[in-house]
């Protein structure tokens, strides 16, 4: 199998309701690393990922993956939106949600194959949610819901994984399970991009960081990004985080 190429973001600017949300971002996201996207509220973290995937219009710039635009290769992407974007009262079971990860691979007018069901089953096993298969998604805890979405992403068999705030409303056990799987995905040579805002201990799980505040502040290896100067530029003078700063 050919190695996964990098994502190249070139002069990316994005507006959100006529207000500039991101200005002139240049960035390369490499496979094989667990990459965290950090920045204060309204820094444009979600916007960066959505714009990368072509889910919102760009003002300038292009995002390529290998030889083509990333927006043309979304069949290689698994994206998990923020919890708040989802209607948890929707009439669907855990199994229904995980099988959504197989829709794109199955193709129009085809039924899910036995192989697809097997892949979905293994994904549910991997996140430790197999016994909840027939539960309505609304009957799960926040952590369980997030694990089901992780299983859906795994079932997509993607090369690029993007997660928007996967640790919001999640218990300790789930956080450990999710980080473990993120590391495994990165180790398997995938691109793993995780939006986060928690500057606590969990930041040490990331190999690389992208620090944003309406523009790119810094990107690269964790200790290289986490300088006092970068953090002040991203968060202003009021950040209660210095424990891991190099």
């Amino acid at each position: 199998m050919a190695p996964t190429p990098s994502i190249t973001i070139d002069h990316l600017s994005v507006n959100y309701r006529d207000v500039q949300a991101l200005r002139n971002v240049n960035l390369t996201v490499r496979p094989g690393k667990l990459v965290g996207v950090f920045g204060p509220n309204g820094a444009g973290k979600s916007t960066l990922v959505k714009a990368m995937l072509g889910l919102m219009p760009l003002v300038t710039g292009r995002v390529t993956y290998g030889d083509d635009l990333l927006a043309h290769q979304l069949n290689r992407v698994a994206y998990v939106p923020q919890r708040s974007q989802i209607d948890w009262t929707f009439p669907a079971t855990v199994w229904d949600v995980v099988m959504m990860g197989r829709v794109q691979k199955t193709g129009w007018l085809h039924r899910f194959s036995v192989a697809s069901r097997q892949i979905a089953k293994e994904a549910l096993d991997r996140v430790g949610m197999a016994e909840f298969r027939d539960r309505p998604i609304g009957a799960l805890s926040g952590g369980q819901q997030q694990r089901v979405f992780l299983a859906r992403a795994l079932a997509q068999e993607a090369d690029i994984f993007c997660f928007d705030e996967p640790f919001v409303g999640v218990d300790q056990k789930t956080e450990a399970v999710i980080f473990q799987i993120f590391r495994e995905l990165a180790a398997a040579g995938h691109i793993v991009l995780v939006i986060n805002h928690d500057l606590g201990e969990s930041i040490t799980n990331f190999d690389q960081l992208i620090l944003l505040n309406k523009e790119l502040i810094a990107a690269g290896p964790r200790d290289w990004v986490l300088t006092r100067d970068n953090m002040t530029r991203a968060y202003g003078g009021h950040v209660g985080f210095f424990g891991h700063v190099a």
């Binding site: 979304l74 992407v77 998990v80 669907a92 229904d96 959504m100 829709v103 794109q104």
Partner: peptide, 20 residues
């Protein structure tokens, strides 16, 4: 014929769009 696609779309439009 479009049941599985419409289910994905109506449950999670962003996730569905991001999967292509």
């Amino acid at each position: 014929l479009l049941y599985k696609e419409l289910l994905f779309y109506s449950f999670d439009p962003l996730g569905a769009q991001a999967s292509g």
